[in-house]
Design a binder for these strands. Sequence first.
DNA 1: ATTATTACTACGTTAGTCGTAGTAAGTGTG
DNA 2: CACACTTACTACGACTAACGTAGTAATAAT
Lengths: 109, 109
Amino acid sequence: MISSDVIRGYNDTMILSLLLEEDSYGYEISKSIRQISDEKYIIKETTLYSAFNRLEKQGFIRSYQGSQTHGRQRTYYRITPTGIDYYRQKCEEWALTREVIDRFIKEVS
Amino acid sequence: MISSDVIRGYNDTMILSLLLEEDSYGYEISKSIRQISDEKYIIKETTLYSAFNRLEKQGFIRSYQGSQTHGRQRTYYRITPTGIDYYRQKCEEWALTREVIDRFIKEVS
DNA sequence: ATTATTACTACGTTAGTCGTAGTAAGTGTG
DNA sequence: CACACTTACTACGACTAACGTAGTAATAAT
């Protein structure tokens, strides 16, 4: 299980990564993160929706109303060009972070 | 440069990692992090000292007064057995996190 | 005596996550 | 046709890590 404290800086990146493949909405994103992580990280609903708001305010994603199937009408999100740039940046930052943290990881006898 | 937002979950781990090698104090830890990360991450003083307080409250480190050399008397920190356990856990969590985040990283054309 | 260096400490702000709860709109069951 | 069930959010207040800014403490060098 991965605690939210350690993955915190990467929620936005994960969401953008999924939106890069196709437009999506809360429930689906949540399920995808769960599946892709092999149940090792489950994002809280409130965290997810507040991330959507933040990302939209920053212009990284844009929302539109989709049609409903089994339940309430969905709000879909699409990644913007600025969002794609931001995602790229975050990927580079991740590469750096990986390298740096790795240097602080050692076997303890 | 690594932003504090993304490395946030690993400040404690980095500090514990350094204390595992030898007892140390604020200024030195700060310089070590800077050096080991090739200047890619510089921890803020306030962040560092508040981490010390947190870790001590949790019983992961213990402080003692050292002698001064060039300046004010230092507060040294030593990692405790519980702290070592906690560090081990964090290392495992890091391995998981690495794997998971990697799955959300892709090349964007 | 003053400046530089080392080593903190105080304090108030901000942002992301969380817990809890409730709302909105559709589908299925008796 | 009422009521439960599922999907899809929304509101709100609490907590905490990190931050900016500023100041303090103690010693050495000039």
